[in-house]
Computed example of a mutant assay.
Amino acid sequence: MLVQNDNPTRAAMLARVGSLQQAAYVRPIEYQEGRAHGLRGVEVKNGPLRFMSMADRALDVAQFEYRGENLTFLSKPGLNGRNQFDTNGLEAQRSIMGGLFFTCGFENICAPYVTPEGSKYPAGDYPMHGRIRTTPAEHVSSDAYWDGGGRYVLEVSGEMREAELFGENLVLRRRISSVYGTSTVTVEDEVTNESFRSEPLMWMYHCNFGWPLLDEGAEVVIPSRKATPRDETTAADETPWNEIGAPVDNRPESVYLHDLAADGEGRSFAAVVNRKLGLGVVIEFDAADFPYFMEWKSMGSGDYVVGLEPSNSSVYGRGWHEERGDLHMIAPQATERKTVTFTVIEGEKAIDELAARRDSLLDN
């Protein structure tokens, strides 16, 4: 018997391979050309699932594939390491790669922001989506091992520090894991404020889905009680927020703020599915960890992407929260933790079950 509790048994696997790397491995790599020259990463293969965790960019997961099909968006600049565009206002768009997710924060998310004179907050100039996404990891570790429960675990971990002389000192410790025989990737994060003053902690996972998963006829599946357009441009978009059409030249982006339903345990989800391809990617999380959820829908040719964004802060950004007096803060020496999972689903039945799960949450 090869499978026990949905996972291959150790003896059964070893009987069928010379090296387990036929089926699964974790492998440090370094890119050698172009904008990505010198970029360190960790390649993880878990059977049909393959992804890259970028060690020089917060261990964010860039490329994400299932059975050879790309599932995520890669922006026009492509893969790139640190460069002069990393932390300069809107020029951050020249270094945003997309990928399965990139981490936004921690002093700012969304639009660039400069602290106005007279603010009660320390003066600062904050780039689009913050600085943590470009922070290289330290203490990087990668491993593949049989655990005590008979599971073959693939794991990447490391630490990122967002810090400034006389300023913040926030440490992100991240563990990314996947178990052979499953199609799930789990991201476990904790942020500790190692400074001696309270600090803003804006925290968003910018999850980005692209072709061929994203194509005409694909669908965004979210248990959304209400979808609020961010601005007049979005409000004028007559296409339903959950429907995906073909790319349109120079079409502007639309952004929605969703009020999500959750189950009895406080869990919620968001997904992009493609019935023609027979695949979908589901993001799951505790709704209490992410009181804000945004959908970025860009149907423009060459910028064809849907972003699903669980967040502790609004897309309206730091200034909006400062004016409201509800900017999320973390106390000195305090720690906050969040866990997000990404699961690839396959086949018509699995997609139907996901839609039924959405409907059930909305009916309660």
Score class of each variant (00 low, 15 high):
L2E: 06
Q4G: 00
N7G: 03
T9L: 12
R10M: 07
L14W: 05
L14D: 13
A15C: 11
R16K: 12
S19I: 00
L20I: 10
Q22I: 02
Q22T: 06
R27N: 07
P28M: 04
I29V: 15
E30D: 11
E30G: 14
E33V: 13
G34S: 06
G38E: 01
L39V: 05
V42T: 14
P48T: 01
L49Q: 11
F51D: 06
M54V: 14
D56S: 11
A58L: 10
A58G: 08
L59N: 14
L59Y: 02
V61E: 09
Y66T: 02
Y66W: 14
G68L: 02
G68T: 00
G68C: 00
N70E: 13
T72Q: 13
T72P: 04
S75A: 15
K76H: 15
G78S: 05
G81N: 15
G81A: 09
T87R: 03
A92P: 02
A92Y: 11
Q93P: 00
I96N: 02
G99Q: 09
F101I: 08
T103G: 06
C104H: 13
E107S: 14
I109Q: 01
I109G: 03
Y113N: 08
M128I: 09
G130K: 02
R131E: 14
R133C: 03
T135L: 09
A137D: 07
H139E: 12
A144T: 09
G150H: 01
R151D: 12
L154F: 04
E155D: 05
G158M: 10
E159R: 15
R161D: 04
F166T: 03
F166C: 08
R175M: 06
Y180K: 04
G181N: 12
G181F: 01
T184G: 01
V185G: 08
V185L: 12
T192A: 15
F196V: 06
F196G: 10
E199I: 02
P200C: 03
W211R: 07
P212M: 02
P212T: 10
L213N: 10
E216M: 13
A218H: 10
A218Y: 01
V220W: 00
V221L: 03
P223M: 10
T234C: 04
T234S: 07
A236F: 05
A236D: 14
D237Y: 09
D237F: 12
E238C: 03
T239F: 09
T239W: 05
W241E: 08
G245F: 13
G245L: 03
A246I: 07
P247C: 09
E253T: 12
Y256V: 08
L257G: 06
L260G: 13
G264R: 12
F269T: 12
A270T: 07
G278R: 06
V282K: 02
I283N: 08
D289Q: 14
M294C: 13
W296R: 02
S298G: 14
G300Y: 03
G300K: 03
S301M: 07
S301P: 00
G302S: 10
V305C: 14
V305I: 15
N312T: 09
S313L: 01
V315T: 08
Y316G: 00
H321V: 01
R324V: 02
R324H: 04
L327D: 05
L327S: 09
A331S: 15
P332I: 08
Q333T: 12
Q333E: 15
T335N: 13
K338I: 13
V340H: 12
T341L: 04
G347P: 10
G347C: 07
K349Y: 00
R357H: 14
D359I: 02
D363I: 13
